[in-house]
C-alpha cells in the first residue's frame, strides 16, 4: 500500500488524518478553553478565570462521588488484574478441557454490549439479594474489566519462549514459583497496562453502573450525567479538563510501558 511514487498521492491521506483528528480534538479543546473562560455559556471569551475550578472544589457531593469512583476503580482493577493474570498464565501454560470454551467466553464478554451485561447483573443481584451499592458495583466492574486484562497479559505471554518454563521446572521450581518469579516479572508491563486499562474502564463506565449502584453510593460518571443533563454547567468543563489531564498522564504511562516492553523483547512479533 505504500506507494509514494505518484505525486500528490499523500494529499488525500493527510486530509483524512487531519479531518479525523480535528473531529476528535476540537470539541475537547473547546471544553478546555471554556473551563478558563469567565463567560458562563462559552460563546465568547470574557477573560481568564479560575472560578469554575473553585466552584468545583467546593462541590462536596461531587468530591464524595469522585472518591467513591476512585475506590471502586482501584479495587476493581486490582482484583481483575489478580484473577486476569492467573487466567492468562493458565491459558498460556495449560491444556485443559473447556479451554476453548473459556477463551470464547472471555471474548464474548468483551463484545457484550454494556446494557446487556448491566441488566443481567441487576437480575443476579436482585435474585441473590445483594443490596445495590458498593459491593454490587465492585463485582460488576471486575466482571467487565476481566476479559481486557486477560487479553492484555495473554498477548504478552504468547510472545515468550516455553523453554524458560521448562528450564525452571528442571531446576525444581513449582508452578506457583514459576508464576511469581518468572511469568509475573516478565509480563509486568502488560500487567500494569492491564491495570491501567481496567482502571479507566471502571472510571468511565456509565451504563453498567447506572443499573447496579444504589442511591446510597453515587459515583462520578453518574454525578456528571445529572450535572450535564440539566444544561450548561461550566464546572463540568473544569472537571473535564482535570480528568483529561489525568488520563493523559495514565495513557502516556501505559504507552511508555508498552513501548519499553517492546524494546526489551525484540524477538517478539
Amino acid at each position: 500500500m505504500i506507494n509514494n511514487k505518484q505525486p500528490l498521492m499523500w494529499l488525500p491521506r493527510v486530509l483524512v488524518m487531519l479531518g479525523v483528528f480535528l473531529f476528535l480534538y476540537v470539541p475537547l479543546l473547546l471544553l478546555i478553553v471554556n473551563s478558563f473562560n469567565a463567560n458562563r455559556y462559552g460563546f465568547q471569551w470574557d477573560g481568564f478565570s479560575w472560578q469554575w475550578y473553585l466552584k468545583l472544589f467546593n462541590n462536596e457531593g461531587l468530591k464524595v462521588a469522585a472518591g467513591h469512583s476512585l475506590v471502586v476503580a482501584m479495587l476493581a482493577s486490582t482484583v481483575s488484574v489478580l484473577i486476569g493474570s492467573l487466567t492468562a498464565v493458565a491459558l498460556f501454560r495449560y491444556q485443559f478441557r473447556g479451554k476453548q470454551v473459556l477463551q470464547s467466553g472471555l471474548f464474548v464478554v468483551m463484545m457484550t454490549p454494556d446494557i446487556v451485561m448491566a441488566i443481567a447483573l441487576l437480575a443476579l443481584f436482585a435474585t441473590i439479594g445483594i443490596k445495590l451499592g458498593f459491593i454490587s458495583l465492585l463485582l460488576a466492574h471486575i466482571t467487565f474489566c476481566l476479559p481486557f486484562v486477560v487479553a492484555s497479559v495473554y498477548a504478552r505471554l504468547r510472545g515468550f519462549d516455553h523453554n524458560i518454563i521448562d528450564a525452571a521446572r528442571d531446576l525444581g521450581a513449582t508452578d506457583a514459583v514459576i508464576f511469581r518469579r518468572i511469568l509475573v516479572p516478565l509480563a509486568m508491563p502488560a500487567i500494569i497496562g492491564g491495570w491501567l486499562l481496567a482502571f479507566t474502564l471502571s472510571l468511565d463506565d456509565v451504563i453498567v453502573s447506572s443499573f447496579v449502584t444504589g442511591p446510597g453510593y453515587e459515583i462520578l460518571p453518574l454525578r456528571i450525567q445529572s450535572m450535564v443533563r440539566v444544561g450548561v454547567s461550566p464546572e463540568v468543563n473544569a472537571l473535564a479538563t482535570l480528568l483529561l489531564a489525568g488520563s493523559l498522564l495514565l495513557v502516556t504511562l501505559s504507552q511508555w510501558l508498552t513501548w519499553r516492553a517492546g524494546r526489551a523483547r525484540p524477538q517478539s512479533v
Binding site: 470539541p27 475537547l28 473547546l30 456509565v206 462520578l220 463540568v236 473535564a240 480528568l243
Partner: peptide
Amino acid sequence: WTNSLIRTYALKNV
C-alpha cells in the same frame, strides 16, 4: 481514555 460522558458533553457544546 477520557470519560465518554464528558466527550458527549463536549460534542453537545459544539
